[in-house]
Simulated assay, not measured.
Amino acid sequence: MKAVVVLAMGWVVGSHAQASLLPQWRADLQRLTEDAVRAAVPAPAQSSVEVGEPDSRLRLAPCAQVQAFVPPGQSLWGRSRVGLRCLQGAVRWSITVPVHVRVLAEAWAATQPLPAGATLGLEHVVRRRVELTAEVSPALAQAEPPVGRVLARPIEAGDAVRQHHLRQRQWFAAGAPVQLRLAGAGFSIRTEGQALTPGWEGQTVRVKLESGRTVLGQAVGPHEVELPW
């Protein structure tokens, strides 16, 4: 979630002042984050953004033009940070401000406490609204219930079933024949190859084509590899 907006407004007059968000700055940071979140989550999801305060120990020089930005490497998911930097002033400064992003949507949740090693049945999961951003690991939001999946760690009743709860599946072994697919806007290409490395769910795999060329793709299903576009 990346976005940039320029805020053209003055800073307090005088010498270095304690960092504090002006109302206009807070409103623009709020808008910046909300727009980025809405662009990244599905329409049925509900999201909210809470903008915090910068470190009270900071002292900032006067600035006539400030830019809000998302720092490199920051994902606006859960507890994160956005930035403010001075573009026009005697002293150029840059600070970050905490934000808390919450996204609520329907996903699969456990109906009862389950231990690691348990195999999920239909009676173990239910669709309910959960906070997707409560953890970094993605919640399982697909339409099909995760029946037959084995838990890699215990889960409590009511908790969202997340990727890190499940044992990783091996879709195929090294040396196995695989189907490769490449899909883009208005086209889809399929070909065959031989896996040179094991195909673990969601992991990169090396595949040798009939021509002898080696390509990298992602293991996405039984004997299925998706090539990057």
Results as ranks from 00 to 15, higher is better:
H165A: 08
D35N: 09
R128F: 03
P113T: 11
T119G: 11
S188Y: 01
P145F: 10
A152W: 05
Q163L: 09
R213D: 14
P138Y: 04
G73E: 09
Q30G: 05
Q170I: 03
V136K: 10
V13Y: 11
H164Q: 13
V126S: 13
A174Q: 10
A40V: 09
P54A: 07
Q194F: 02
R81V: 13
V13F: 11
R79W: 04
G10N: 13
R81N: 03
G148P: 05
Q18E: 11
Q18N: 08
L122Q: 14
V5Y: 00
A8Y: 07
V161Y: 00
V136F: 01
V205T: 06
Q88D: 13
R213H: 12
G158V: 10
G148C: 09
V205K: 00
A157V: 02
A195Y: 03
H100E: 10
M9V: 09
Q194D: 05
A17P: 04
E123M: 08
P23I: 04
A141Y: 04
E131Q: 13
R153G: 02
H100A: 12
P42E: 04
A3M: 07
P54L: 11
P54C: 08
T96I: 06
P222H: 08
S56M: 07
M9H: 12
R149G: 01
R102T: 15
L122S: 15
V13N: 08
T214G: 04
P71D: 11
A195R: 02
A174I: 06
V99N: 01
Q203D: 10
H124R: 05
R167T: 10
P72F: 07
D28C: 10
T197V: 01
R31N: 14
V220C: 14
R26G: 07
A19T: 06
F187V: 07
R128M: 07
A116E: 12
Q30L: 13
E135I: 03
L7C: 08
G89Y: 01
V37R: 02
G158W: 03
V66K: 09
A141D: 14
R92E: 11
R190M: 12
I189F: 12
R181N: 09
V161I: 15
L122V: 14
V126P: 05
G202N: 02
P222E: 14
R38K: 11
V37D: 00
P115D: 15
V161T: 03
V51Y: 06
T133A: 02
E156H: 06
F172C: 11
A219P: 01
P98D: 00
V4I: 12
E53T: 08
G199Q: 07
I155L: 01
G212A: 12
P115I: 09
A176I: 00
S20E: 15
A39V: 06
R85D: 06
Q24W: 06
A183H: 07
A176W: 01
G83L: 04
A17T: 14
L166I: 05
L216R: 14
V150A: 09
V70P: 04
L22Y: 04
